[in-house]
Design a protein around this nucleic acid. Structure first.
Lengths: 117, 117
DNA sequence: TGAATATATGAGCAACTGTTCATATGTTAT
DNA sequence: ATAACATATGAACAGTTGCTCATATATTCA
């Protein structure tokens, strides 16, 4: 770690003010972990699908043309992040979105990538 | 890959409709890559800091108590994702947010993790 | 009960990520 | 020109991630 930089005279103040604004390690970690869940194409596809309708594991696997195991693993991640919930109906388990923020986050992400073209 | 599931009689239709809604590989990939950038505590802290004021590399390093090299690498990632821009003033390079969506995305993420407690 | 179906889970592996360390580039001042 | 400073970059390494494969659990039906 280097000492305080000298790139301008107000630096000590800038750093002090910055540290006051800086996120907690805890909050930054939680936030990063949330976005990490959105950071995979398979999970993004699943979330987008579920934003239209609830689906069972098997259907999701068929729509995405992936194995049931892979989808099940990903749904577990989504559920741990409280982004989806599930209900059981006999042998079948239906998954649905469990958070209003999912729509907004996906939307803002889409806005960004289309605006950046 | 297994064959079409038989969990209910409307399945073929469900899968067909799902495939119509399904995101392109391209879009899902771009979107995931964007969120991946938010999926690291260091980058989240930097983005949050820059949402308050522009800062030079050295100051960010001091505020986060990390090496200049580590911060520089991360700023490169943020810039490639078009989330930050920079201006050069002598030896110093100042970074600032370069996208309105950053605020919204961070806010929605914070709303989610606080709502989930 | 036993077979079939739907989902969940654990181990293992290849691919990716974030940091460190060393060094290069570019700017300012003497 | 030379030294000092601010930033950028490449290689390398440990830690993480997403999938596959095999198998376990749970439910329904004959």
């Amino acid at each position: 770690m280097e000492t305080t930089c000298q790139c301008n005279t107000a630096n000590n103040d800038t750093v002090t003010k910055g540290k006051a604004v800086l996120m907690t390690e805890h909050v930054a970690g939680d936030l990063a972990n949330l976005f990490k869940v959105f950071g995979d194409p398979t999970r993004v596809k699943i979330l987008h699908l579920l934003s239209v309708t609830e689906l069972c594991v098997c259907d999701i696997a068929n729509v995405l043309d992936m194995t049931q195991s892979a989808i099940s693993h990903q749904l577990r991640v989504l559920k741990q992040a409280k982004l989806v919930r599930n209900r059981k109906d006999g042998k079948t388990v239906y998954y649905a979105l469990d958070d209003d923020h999912v729509h907004t986050i996906l939307r803002q992400g889409l806005d960004h990538i289309s605006h950046v073209l």
